[in-house]
Structure formats: C-alpha cells, structure tokens
Design a protein around this nucleic acid. Structure first.
Lengths: 123, 123
DNA sequence: ATGGATGCAAAAGTTTTGCAAAGAA
DNA sequence: TTCTTTGCAAAACTTTTGCATCCAT
C-alpha cells in the first residue's frame, strides 16, 4: 500500500457517496499534485480487485466508486440536483432473488444506481 | 424521415436485442458505406427524442438502443457469453413502486439491464 | 432562398497501455 | 538484482460539435 494508493483510498472514503474518477483525481491532486491520472485509474481498478472499494455504473453510464464493506445498499440519484439517497438492500434483494429463481441467471449487479427526480425537484 | 434515418431505424429493429451504436454503425455501413458515424449517433439521439427507440445504459456503462413500443421489459445480460434474456416488467415495477413510495423519488429508470451469468456459463 | 440533413474533420471526455525511471525487497 | 509502482506520453474508444455542402421544399 503505497502513499498514492492510500491517498486514493482516503479520498474515496472522504467523498463517501459515489465518487467519480475525475472527482477522485481532483482531490488527490489537491493533496499531491504529482500523482498522475493514470495512477488513480490503475489504483481504483486495483482496489476493486482487492475488494476494498466497489464500482458501479450510474444510469448515465458513469463509473463510480465507493468504499466497500458497508452494508449492501443502492443509490437513488436525482438527475436534476444530484441528490444521492441510499436505500437498503432488502427490497432489491427480494426482487433479484425472485428474478434469479425464475431465470436461472446468477445476477452479479450487487450495487445499483437508479436515476430519477428527488421530491424537491419534482415540484 | 430520410433514407439514413430509416436505415438506422431498420437496423435497430433488425438487431432486436440491445443494439450498441458501433454495432448499428457497422450494419448501416454494410448497406450504405457513405453514411457517417456522426449521422448514426445524431439519428439515434433523434429517434430517442421522437420516442421511436429507447436507450438504456448497461451495467458495463455502454449505451444500448432498442425499438420502442414493446411491452415494458428489462434485460439480463450474461457477462460471459453475452446471452440476453428479457424479463417482464411486473416484478421490477413492484420493486420500483415500493421504492418510490418509501423514498419520495420519482424513478425514471424504466428500462434496466442487469449483468450476471447465464445458466450455461455458471457451469 | 430557406431550412434542415449530411459528411467531414476535428475536438472532447474518459480510460487504457507501453515504456522508462524510480523505489522497495 | 529483481519485481513492483509510478509518471509520462500517447493511444484507444466513444461521442459530440462546427462548418460547409447538399437536398428538398
């Protein structure tokens, strides 16, 4: 675990929510401008493989990272204001379980992001 | 509705499943090599706005298009062999309805794609 | 002629890769 | 030394945009 890797991990922790690579890169830059973008990408991929962070794809197709080890949960992201509401796994899990049973597929999407409008932006 | 647009629409129909822009472009190319990639992209965007096709983002973050007007449905895509199984809306709808009620969000993801392993590839 | 559609080239955004230098084991 | 990590630059991939031309009204 090199300083660069620690820093990337810290930043992902710090952001807490869904962290996009560019956002991570910018924060890392602020702390240590020498760290290269490629290092951030390589590190994120590595941290994923190590299971320290998880990756998801948003409904808009952006890769987002998050610290692993939290309770399984998912995200509702407001496409208008960006508000990010986590929701617990139980309902999704029930849905996926039923789907696996019916289809025979083993579903690997363990962390999903749904896009929509938050209560405020619906007004 | 120009010949180019008709051709893009036809190809999306023809592919049936989730059609990726490059795949669409290639098939259009075979029929009419003069059609430019930018035209395909512009046309897909237009057809979306017209409601003739729908777009989704796969779990891998790729944009995929599909002819509109089908019954609401979703996709299970095998990350190993690419098999694409559609599943009906009902269970997803029930899940989303519950989620909307609990969260206050209006969820706009009306066409989702989950990634996993098909029965064959689990062996 | 007016306005939209197209082809083209170029840009833009994101992510990956090859390679050489630097560092640690 | 040997293996890994890093910084760098460049490529790769996907999508968008500006502009001139073309076509149909």
């Amino acid at each position: 675990m090199t300083p660069q890797r620690q820093m990337v991990l810290d930043v992902v922790c710090e952001i807490g929510d869904h962290a996009r690579p560019e956002q991570i890169y910018e924060l890392v830059q602020q702390k240590s401008p020498a760290v290269h973008r490629a290092t951030v990408y390589r590190t994120l991929k590595l941290l994923c493989e190590l299971g320290l962070v998880t990756d998801t794809t948003t409904a808009e197709g952006h890769m987002v990272y998050e610290i692993a080890g939290k309770q399984p949960h998912h995200h509702l992201v407001c496409r208008c204001c960006g508000a990010d509401l986590e929701f617990p796994d139980e309902d999704y899990r029930a849905f996926v379980d039923k789907l696996e049973e019916k289809s025979g597929f083993r579903i690997e999407a363990t962390h999903i992001t749904l896009s929509g409008l938050c209560p405020d932006c619906q007004k």
